[in-house]
Design a protein around this nucleic acid. Structure first.
Length: 555
RNA sequence: CCGCCCAUGGCUCAACUGGAUAGAGCAGCGGACUUCUAAUCCGCAGGUUGCAGGUUCGAGUCCUGCUGGGCGGACCA
């Protein structure tokens, strides 16, 4: 986590320069950034401090940078500090520092990569929340991977996280679901029924009907729909929910809470919240319906909360649900939705404001749709027609590891082409194996070491200065970057960065592996390299764990 | 008609949120296994960042207007 140290060192040097009168007395802007430059010739880290203070200081950036460099170059952390380009400060870190850092990582062990960046702030993460009207499809899978991995990343970065699945277990579509099953139930007994097009068409409806048949026989045959609908709904929801949970479990997605929409109504919170918003003047009646004045809070339309037939809309539940979440005392709410729900963002933000909170209390991440490719062709997906590729199907086909990794290789607001053939292929083209293989190779090195009776010494007894080739230093730098990367990914709510990091680390490890041997004729060198291998393995395990992907010891 | 998202080598994507000469992986071509796993590595080639303006020391990134694609826009969910 050298980057943060360097930032502090630079800012201290700046204050020192002010005290000595060689630098102008201006504040350090919050936009001061220490970054690792794209180009190696620009050093290990670069600072833009001189550039961003120049105008306020009324001095040239290069002039300021020069003064800073003079103060900083005596620091033993650096072997070189230079002024470059328009006024960047480039820092070249001494090799001994990178080598020394190996012991730090060793000491941190499995907790390496974690930080206190989040300061224990409480984050609520809601994701997937698919209606229990059918199995999860690939799109939900992407949301699940993103949400679960984000939770892991946030925790590692020192946030407290609660994950939650919101279950829409009430309302119109529950009626439709129950009726769909009821009709299939009648069909089962040879009744000729007309099955409406906009009802749930999927095969799983037949399956549920069969289960009811085997459990309860024909007892509902002579019962009018109205008096048995509830039990059809309950059974359907029970079966579908439990399948959803099974799928998520196999996908290594964990939830702290399962939140039922029904409880919002039963507890009276929906009515209570609506009447409070009414008192605040955010509601009005028109044409017999009750409306939420969303346009007053940045939405483009006002939204119906209670229809003229007296039935509450889903939006009414959303209002109560978000109020419930807000009052549970989180510092931040994160909702992860499919991108097709983007039209909802403004109205939910309007709720947040109406309830008296800052709108940035809620961050909505929109996960773009997934194109599933098979044989080079896109498999079309339509939800109600029942023609969708389920998450279950993908899991059975390519496995949890490949699926999760692929879902987490792209920024979530970019469309994702999920190539089923590629995901199954065990080769270079498949990024999962590339990373996992790196971990397996390292594990294999240790198996060989044990066979040869070599065990790793205590780090303080190892001559780490032997790790001095360019490949060593590159690897050491990459290992150092993990905690910063995790912290950045957490703050940006972008778990995909971890997969990028790991792919790059794997590349470096594979390069190292072909060029150098870990177990050599020289016992001292072997110890140093085994320490490097050990620590690199720690980082792979950590990174893969953050993605929810396994780290196999053999492949 | 209105709103949101996207546009970067043949393909799929990066670019640390405004930084330096736009980087990877596939696919293509050429090389590397008597030594810890070749599910690997090394090299070559590939670009006016969709178009046109603007903002400033500096733009793939920000603002405006186009073009093309995706998704939304019910007292449906």
């Amino acid at each position: 986590m050298l980057r943060n140290n360097i930032q502090k060192v630079i800012e201290e040097a700046f204050r020192q320069g002010i005290a000595e009168g060689v630098l102008p007395d201006v504040p350090i802007p919050a936009s001061h950034q220490v970054v690792s430059p794209k180009q190696e010739v620009h050093g290990d880290f670069a600072s833009n401090l001189a550039l961003i203070t120049a105008s306020e200081a009324k001095r040239s950036p290069r002039d300021l940078a020069g003064c800073l460099a003079k103060i900083l170059e005596v620091n033993p952390l650096f072997h070189k500090v230079e002024v470059a380009g328009p006024g960047f400060l480039n820092f070249f870190v001494a090799a001994t520092w990178w080598q020394e850092n190996l012991r730090t990582i060793w000491g941190a062990g499995d907790s390496y990569g974690e930080s206190l960046t989040g300061n224990g702030q409480l984050v609520h993460l809601e994701f997937v929340s698919a209606n229990p009207t059918g199995p999860l499809h690939v799109g939900h899978g992407r949301g699940a991977a993103v949400g679960d991995s984000l939770a892991r990343v946030l925790k590692a970065a020192g946030f407290s996280v609660e994950t939650e699945y919101y279950i829409n277990d009430i309302g119109n579509q529950m009626r439709t679901l129950g009726t769909s099953v009821y009709l299939r139930y009648l069909e089962h007994f040879g009744h000729d029924v007309e099955f409406p097009k906009d009802y749930y068409q999927g095969d799983y409806i037949h399956d549920i009907a069969s289960i009811i048949v085997s459990r309860e026989g024909n007892k509902y045959l002579d019962t009018p729909l109205e008096s048995c609908l509830t039990s059809f709904i309950d059974t359907a929801v029970e079966i579908i929910s439990s399948d959803i949970r099974k799928d998520l479990e196999e996908f290594r997605v964990h939830y702290d809470n399962w939140f039922s929409e029904r409880t919002l109504h039963d507890s009276g919170l929906v009515d209570k919240t609506i009447s409070e918003l009414q008192d605040k003047g955010y509601m009005f009646e028109e044409e017999g319906a009750l409306w939420f004045k969303a346009t007053a809070l940045g939405d483009e339309k006002d939204r119906v909360v209670k229809r003229s037939n007296g039935v509450l809309t889903y939006f009414a539940s959303d209002i109560a649900y978000h109020r419930h979440k807000l009052e549970r005392g989180y510092d931040l709410l994160v909702d992860i939705w499919g991108a097709d729900h983007h039209g909802y963002v403004a109205r939910v933000k309007a709720i947040i404001k109406a309830l008296g909170y800052q709108e940035d209390k809620l961050q909505v991440l929109l996960v773009q749709l997934v194109n599933l490719l098979e044989g080079g062709k896109i498999r079309a997906m339509s939800t109600r027609a029942g023609e969708f590729v389920t998450l279950r199907e993908v899991l059975d086909d390519v496995g949890s590891d490949a699926a999760r990794f692929i879902f987490l290789t792209r920024r979530c607001d970019s469309h994702l082409d999920f190539d089923l053939d590629l995901a199954k292929r065990q080769s270079q083209e498949n990024p999962v194996y590339y990373v996992q293989y790196a971990h397996a190779r390292l594990s294999s090195v240790f198996r060989n070491a044990v066979e040869q009776g070599i065990s790793l010494a205590e780090p303080q007894d190892i001559d780490i200065s032997l790790l001095n080739t360019p490949e060593d230093i590159k690897l050491l730098k990459q290992l150092d970057a993990l905690p910063c990367l995790v912290a950045d990914a957490a703050l940006a709510l972008e778990p995909y960065r971890v997969s990028y990091y790991l792919t790059k680390l794997a590349g470096q490890l594979h390069g190292y592996y072909t060029r150098h041997r870990f177990i050599t004729d020289n016992p001292d060198l072997t110890q140093a390299r085994l320490l490097l291998a050990h620590v690199t393995r720690i980082v792979f395990r950590k990174g893969l764990e953050l993605l929810g992907v396994s780290a196999p010891e053999k492949m």
